[in-house]
Simulated assay, not measured.
Amino acid sequence: MERMTHERANGIKTGYWSPATKETLVQRLAAYENTGLEPWEIGPAIEKAAKDAETATATKMAECIAGGIKDTVEAIHRNPDGFFKGGAR
């Protein structure tokens, strides 16, 4: 994440500052608030999204493999002799 605020290091004031305009800061804050997540919920939400994506990918791969196996079994049933002699596609 690209930070928009920076900690003050001048020793006069404490807190944070930003070179961004108020409009930019407000829009960025609104985007964050629209997630509905608290700061401590963001990390776990990202981890869950990654895990869900891995699961979805694995499911798609399994479906493809299962489809290929089903097609092969159907080809064997249609023409067992031709399949084992290299005639099936």
Rank of each mutant, 00 (worst) to 15 (best):
G68Y: 03
F83V: 00
N79I: 02
A45E: 09
E7F: 06
I12F: 14
C64M: 08
I65N: 03
A53K: 06
K70E: 09
K51G: 02
A45P: 01
E63R: 06
I42M: 06
E7T: 09
T35R: 13
L37V: 01
I76E: 00
F83H: 05
N10Q: 13
E63M: 12
R28N: 11
M1T: 13
I76M: 01
V26G: 02
R8G: 05
V73N: 02
P19A: 11
I69K: 01
Q27H: 09
K70R: 07
W40Y: 15
N34H: 14
W40Q: 15
K51A: 11
T24W: 04
V73Y: 04
A58V: 02
P19Y: 11
R3D: 12
A56E: 07
L37F: 05
A20V: 04
I12A: 13
G86M: 12
I12M: 07
E74P: 00
P80T: 02
K85D: 02
T5I: 11
R78Q: 12
L25Q: 05
G36M: 00
D81L: 14
C64E: 12
L25K: 05
R3G: 10
G36Q: 02
I12G: 10
T14Q: 14
P39H: 15
G87L: 03
T21S: 15
M1R: 14
K60G: 11
D71Q: 13
I65Y: 08
A9P: 00
E63F: 09
T5A: 14
I12R: 13
